[in-house]
């Protein structure tokens, strides 16, 4: 078995709100292997972005541990943490607000290099090579972000994330703000970069079609907890958790013959994250829920071939 690049153990993040404590991420464990794309999917508010931010320590966890290459990140401070951070980067959803409008493209991409103490002459050389790798013409070096379209801005964001030669990139909805024709360009770019540099992606998305295209494995999240982790193909063809099935079934497909009757659709509303159901968090919306589900939290069980599911009544 390959050693994981990232090991997340019993990670939790609690926020205080007026209504009470919100367990945005509640006891989440998973491994991320080198060179793979692990997708993190779920509805808005399920905690997937919080989890992404915890992983690269933009947020401090309330509980739990994260190991990268065997090193416990939660114990790191100052210089050690900065060094570790240069090996993990983030690409954000909104290419309009994640780039500083006062800096030129060259300066934006060079910033992580400057922070890492790369000499000035070397910086420019590296920036130009980064721009080439993400498909930006070198003559755009002195332009400002507002002179670019959404797709090109996302390329700038990706070039910046690649600058420090990271191993892990957390992509938080990187194509959600883009039009379909541009989305395909960025997805193909990410795949190409991954192959070239053996990158590992944690790919956060609500778009199940995009996830199917880009990911090797998938983590399904509901109200702060993981329901299922499995190879992507298994999730789409024979999911174990009812929520996985319903999430995938609700996605509309651009095919008039498929949009059919066999789809299992979710009813009702998301339960309150302040006061989630005591047992399985999905039990109020699950057609298979029993008394056990209402009181006993299901444990994550191993079903073999890399499939894990937390459910008392799995589908297969």
């Amino acid at each position: 078995m390959m050693e994981p690049l990232l090991r997340v153990e019993h990670l939790a993040k609690y926020f205080r709100s007026n209504a009470g404590q919100v367990k945005a991420v509640d006891d989440v464990s998973f491994n991320l292997y080198p060179g793979e794309t692990l997708a993190l999917v779920g509805e808005s508010g399920c905690g997937k972005s919080t989890l992404g931010r915890l992983v690269i320590r933009l947020l401090e966890p309330s509980k739990g541990k994260i190991f990268m290459d065997g090193v416990d990140l939660s114990g790191l401070k100052g210089r050690e943490l900065r060094k570790m951070r240069s090996r993990m980067q983030m690409v954000f959803q909104d290419p309009f607000s994640s780039l500083d409008p006062h800096f030129t493209v060259g300066e934006i991409i060079a910033e992580p290099l400057r922070n890492a103490g790369v000499p000035k002459e070397e910086q420019q050389k590296q920036v130009l090579s980064l721009m080439e790798r993400v498909g930006l013409p070198g003559e755009h070096y002195f332009r400002y972000p507002h002179q670019f379209s959404g797709g090109q801005r996302q390329r700038i964001g990706i070039a910046r994330a690649l600058a420090t030669n990271p191993k892990l990139i957390v992509c938080d909805e990187p194509v959600s703000a883009l039009d379909v024709s541009i989305q395909a360009q960025i997805l193909n770019l990410l795949r190409k970069l991954q192959k070239e540099s053996h990158l590992t992606f944690l790919f956060i998305s609500h778009d199940l079609a995009v996830v199917r295209y880009i990911s090797d494995r998938i983590c399904v999240m509901f109200l702060g907890q993981l329901c299922e982790i499995c190879p992507t193909q298994d999730a789409y063809e024979h999911p174990l958790h009812p929520y996985t099935r319903m999430l995938i079934d609700s996605a509309p497909d651009p095919d008039p013959d498929v949009s059919g009757e066999n789809r299992m659709l979710l009813q009702g509303e998301l339960p309150s994250p302040v006061n989630p159901p005591a047992g399985c968090r999905f039990c109020t919306r699950c057609p298979y829920a029993t008394e056990e589900c209402k009181t006993v939290r299901p444990e994550m069980k191993d079903y073999g071939n890399g499939r894990f599911c937390a459910c008392h009544h799995p589908l297969a």
Partner: peptide, 11 residues
Amino acid sequence: GLMKAIPRVRG
């Protein structure tokens, strides 16, 4: 182009 550029959920 649009149709070929969209990833599919099924099929």
